[in-house]
Computed example of a mutant assay.
Amino acid sequence: MEVQILFPSSLMVTAASVFTLIYVGILGVLEIGGIHLKYSKFFNTGSSAAASSRIKVPSRVGMFLLYTPAFLVGLASFWLFPDGDLRFLFLRSAVTIHFFKRDFEVVFVHKYSGEMAVDSMIIILFSYFTVSSSLIYIQVLTQGLPQPSLDLKYPGILLFLIAITGNFYHHYLLSKLRAKGGKDYKIPKGGLFGLVICPHYLFEILGFLGISLISQTLYSFCVSLGLALYLMGRSYVTRRWYLSKFDDFPKEVKALIPYVF
């Protein structure tokens, strides 16, 4: 008997899945090539003239704006699609919780040191909004279809909960590095920071993998893979940045995956 892991995909869903994978993956390649989304420590990369002419907003405002539409999409889905199976309930709950957590962190946890470029904010906002909307809509399309023979939604829920907890914890550790009003960077310590410089990215990837296991659609897995490619690029240049700024940065600390990368 053939094991079926994914719901069947229409041509439209397949095309959207492949496009999303390529689009987000290219962003990761651009990061490695020095073309960064302008936020955090990479806000001022590029020429000084370009940086001075860039339209920008305070980082806290920009971050809140880019997560909120995706959160509202998840919230609205409970009203727009009141019916649905248990998998659909878990999927939209996970999407909503993920982006609510990010807004909560923006307001109550993170300590920001600078600004965010409006063009980068729009790119990320559009990407998250599209991903949130598409994850939910494509799950709507699976209603009434035969379930995959291998049901992964419960392992997906467990992985998602572990991942958002790990992501929150490492964001909390990062926030404790900087005094209120401070703008300096320090080498992160605690948790998995002794093994990788971006454990929060690692848990972000695992969180979306959990969502993929809940969803079991081609689109959700392409989103997870695309995000992994992007965050691999972002973590690689983050490690390179720390190496250039701190002579005492431990060389054995990897970028994203302990002992490997």
Rank of each mutant, 00 (worst) to 15 (best):
F81T: 10
L37S: 12
L195I: 00
F129N: 00
S17H: 11
L161Y: 01
S47L: 07
V24D: 04
M121E: 08
V24C: 05
L72V: 12
I205A: 08
P8T: 15
F129D: 05
T45W: 02
A94P: 04
Y185W: 10
G194S: 06
I138F: 14
D248K: 12
Y67G: 00
S52E: 13
K41E: 14
G210L: 02
V107T: 13
F261M: 06
K38T: 11
M232E: 05
F90H: 02
P258H: 01
L177E: 07
L158Q: 03
Y128L: 11
Y185D: 05
A15P: 01
F168V: 07
F126C: 06
G207C: 11
Y23N: 04
I257H: 00
G33A: 14
V260K: 05
V18Q: 02
F129K: 00
F90R: 03
F160Y: 07
A76G: 07
L195Q: 11
D151F: 11
S59E: 15
I26D: 02
A16R: 11
E252G: 14
L192E: 08
L6W: 03
V131L: 10
K251G: 02
S47R: 12
V196Y: 03
G144S: 09
M1S: 11
G181R: 06
L229M: 13
F221G: 00
H200S: 04
E115C: 05
L174M: 10
L75I: 13
G33K: 15
A255G: 04
F104M: 09
K189V: 14
Y128G: 01
I122A: 14
K38F: 04
M121F: 14
G74Y: 04
L243C: 11
S40V: 02
